[in-house]
């Protein structure tokens, strides 16, 4: 099942690697409500707290096929709350073969200038 750094659901997983400060998203994540995303929010917040002020936390979406608008809201909310804390910066990795990532991931940079976007 899951430890603190791994969330596995039907068709998706989210994993935090505390050594490399990377949170990886995999599969198709289309949960019903923001409440259903709460445990992912908790993992993201903890990953941010565990990243040093001069370090960078990476959100790796390269293996995430789909994310619904509730999920985009969750990730956006995390970027905004990180901006308010203004500690570690964020790096976002995307996949150029996944169309929504090409189109939508850059929105995260509009929320906070300390977000870098790398679509590979």
């Amino acid at each position: 099942m899951s430890d603190n750094n791994l969330i596995e659901g039907e068709g998706y997983s989210v994993e935090h690697n505390p050594g490399t400060h990377v949170v990886s998203f995999n599969g198709t994540m289309r949960l019903k409500t923001s409440a259903d995303y709460a445990h992912i929010n908790t993992l993201l917040d903890r990953a941010y707290q565990e990243t040093g002020d001069d370090e960078k936390l990476t959100l790796d979406f390269r293996h995430l096929q789909f994310l619904n608008s509730s999920g985009i809201n969750t990730v956006s909310r995390f970027v905004i709350t990180s901006r308010k804390q203004n500690k570690a910066s964020l790096q976002v990795l995307g996949n150029q073969d996944i169309y929504w990532q090409q189109k939508s991931l850059t929105n995260l940079q509009r929320l906070w200038s300390n977000v870098t976007i790398d679509i590979q």
């Binding site: 923001s34 608008s69 509730s70 809201n73 956006s76 909310r77 905004i80 709350t81």
Partner: peptide
Amino acid sequence: RLEENVELDLDG
């Protein structure tokens, strides 16, 4: 909307 959702703790 995104900023309001955080300020007011709303769903999107």
